[in-house]
């Protein structure tokens, strides 16, 4: 995947997140891109680390800065209690329109992620993505072990919420498998 294709996918993802009513701040984009790569197997080639709010990719942060520098994204403050929204500009459309094959190839995955995660807030995304990261890094862990690990690395997440996150991730992952396989 070329750099332009990766940016086109990110812009298309953000456009769909907006359509689903997402706040579409950096954390929302970070998590949606994480799920796109790690759950839907879209090869974005992102280095993912455990950071603020769970999984985080410095590569996404860099891409968002590049898109701002290219005047494809505007930073829009909306509410002092939260971070800004990232809004697409007219120039952003040019890039997605130039990569129709790439967008078509990952269309189902993009729709799936925006539909499942578009309305979630930062805390919900943090719970689910952290649980998913732990399950993905060590698939042999039992549910109880995943819950314990979530609580260990994110002590502010209550155990019941961590357990609920594991259940939800399993359900969503099952649905995602169908989307990934339909692309093969």
């Amino acid at each position: 995947m070329t750099a332009d294709q990766r940016r086109a996918i990110l812009l298309s993802l953000m456009s769909r997140l907006h359509e689903r009513g997402s706040w579409c701040g950096e954390t929302h984009v970070q998590k949606a891109a994480y799920f796109l790569q790690e759950m839907l197997d879209v090869p974005l080639d992102l280095n993912v680390i455990l950071y603020l709010h769970g999984p985080y990719s410095p590569d996404i942060s860099a891409e968002l800065s590049t898109l701002r520098a290219d005047q494809m994204l505007d930073v829009v403050p909306r509410d002092p209690r939260y971070g800004p929204t990232l809004a697409l500009t007219e120039t952003a459309k040019q890039l997605t329109e130039r990569n129709p094959k790439t967008i078509a190839k990952y269309d189902a995955a993009l729709s799936f992620v925006s539909e499942k995660f578009g309305k979630m807030n930062v805390k919900e995304l943090e719970r689910l993505s952290t649980a998913h990261l732990i399950m993905r890094r060590d698939p042999a862990l039992s549910d109880d072990e995943v819950v314990a690990e979530v609580v260990r690395i994110k002590p502010h997440i209550p155990e019941a919420a961590a357990r609920q996150a594991v259940r939800e991730v399993k359900e969503i992952r099952l649905l995602a498998t169908g989307v990934s396989e339909s692309r093969r």
Partner: peptide, 17 residues
Amino acid sequence: VSSVNLSELLNRTPPVS
């Protein structure tokens, strides 16, 4: 609160590319 709510300058200065 987030800095972007307080500073137009921060919002409008693009990253260098």
